[in-house]
Design a protein around this nucleic acid. Structure first.
Length: 390
DNA sequence: TCTGGGGTCCTAGGACCC
DNA sequence: TCTGGGGTCCTAGGACCC
């Protein structure tokens, strides 16, 4: 393994991605710049269950946070400008952004729609890393009209931590030797992989900063969070991360879809319709990507966010909507008491294969050909709709 | 105020086999 | 009556990420 001292990793992160991308489009059309005013991207604000997907910096200054209910954001600032999401446009912005990043190094790992890692070890030196990062950031801004943060570090963890420092439109370094000064004073929650629950456990033991976490032996940490996670946290808190920038695009391991209702549902017909819809979506997506799935799982969520899930293995992998739906219905009957109102249901598939081989079954459902034909028509309709849109 | 949607990985217990 | 150890697979649930 290449030692951290010899690696130069960039992490590039689009500032308030969805909000910035929506702003770029609006500005091009002659509208106002959403980034300069309190604004958010969110679902329908009249639906009490809609949440904020992305918030502008002026909105964040008013205390509006990503993932909070939009009704709550409106209470904080009634003049808040709200725009809906536009996935096709986000996809275009993301692709253009990734293309520019890739021109700086082919060793690129896309981490999400708005983030990537670059291994720059053979592309620049430590002395000109900031200059190179600044060039990249400015090129994105000039050509695409939105800003990014570039984090530069000795490994992926440090690069990612660095890109999260002051925003927007900034380049920061976090080299191994800067860890005590720049990372250890931060609160534990700022460390990657430390979420709400882990933070609570650490605080309960008096561990407040990443530095205190780094100094903790793995023995006592294991008792709090489990052995494997403890080892990782210990390494990360000390600024170590040996993971490489993975260029291979790995295939999905599962697909899922879920629906939250605008009011809790008890009607079996309405719930069945919801399962039908999510089954159509999931099955269509695996067919589109050439998969068949062996495992079907469903979950239901009640008003208190209590979740019950069930999964089951099918005898043969399938991509037929009706087969997946049938399995989901069977599982649903096992876990729902028929009276508890549900706020959300979901359906997922996993154990995916590209196998086309199909075992001939003597008991093959005679309606199977009809089901497949139904799916073909569904897919054709989807394809037509997406062509019209794009 | 009242909490979306889509993923990944880990853990712990039970079943089952040798 | 009390009772092994290891391995694998499966399931439900939990935690994290964007």
């Amino acid at each position: 393994m290449v030692p951290d001292s010899a690696r130069i990793i960039f992490h590039i992160d689009v500032n308030s991605a969805f909000l910035s991308w929506a702003a770029v489009k609006l500005v091009r059309e002659g509208g106002q710049d959403l980034r300069l005013i309190p604004s958010v991207v969110s679902g329908d604000p009249s639906d009490r269950r809609s949440i904020v997907t992305a918030a502008s910096i002026p909105a964040k200054r008013l205390g509006i946070k990503t993932a909070e209910p939009v009704t709550m954001a409106l209470r904080k600032y009634p003049q808040l400008v709200i725009v809906p999401g536009d996935w096709a446009w986000y996809r275009q912005c993301s692709d253009a952004f990734i293309d520019i990043c890739r021109s700086y190094s082919p060793v690129l790992q896309q981490f999400s729609i708005d983030e990537c890692f670059l291994d720059m070890s053979r592309r620049c030196g430590k002395e000109d890393a900031v200059e190179t990062g600044t060039r990249l950031k400015d090129e994105v801004k000039t050509k695409l009209g939105f800003t990014v943060n570039v984090g530069i570090g000795s490994n992926k963890l440090l690069a990612k931590m660095a890109s999260d420092f002051e925003k927007p439109d900034k380049v920061h370094t976090l080299w191994s030797e800067e860890v005590p000064q720049k990372m250890w004073p931060l609160g534990v929650r700022d460390l990657l992989w430390v979420g709400k629950k882990t933070e609570e456990r650490l605080l309960a033991s008096g561990i407040r900063t990443i530095g205190e976490l780094a100094a903790l032996g793995t023995g006592s940490l294991s008792r709090m969070v489990g052995k494997k996670f403890a080892e990782q946290l210990h390494e990360n808190a000390n600024g170590r991360d040996g993971s490489p920038v993975e260029t291979a695009v790995h295939e999905a391991k599962s697909y899922s879809a879920e629906r939250t209702f605008s009011r809790d549902l008890v009607s079996p017909e309405e719930l069945d319709r919801a399962f039908f819809r999510v089954a159509c979506i999931v099955a269509h997506r695996i067919r589109r990507d050439g998969f068949r799935a062996s495992t079907v799982s469903i979950f239901i969520k009640d008003k208190d966010f209590g979740v019950i899930q069930r999964q089951s293995q099918m005898e043969q992998p399938t991509d037929v909507t009706a087969v997946i739906l049938n399995e989901a219905r069977r599982l649903f009957a096992e876990i729902w008491d028929g009276v508890t109102p549900l706020r959300q249901v979901g359906l997922g598939v996993s154990k995916l294969t590209h196998e086309t081989y199909e075992q001939m079954s003597l008991f093959e459902n005679p309606r199977m050909e009809y089901y497949r034909d139904w799916d073909r028509r569904y897919d054709a309709e989807k394809a037509r709709a997406s062509r019209e849109k794009g």
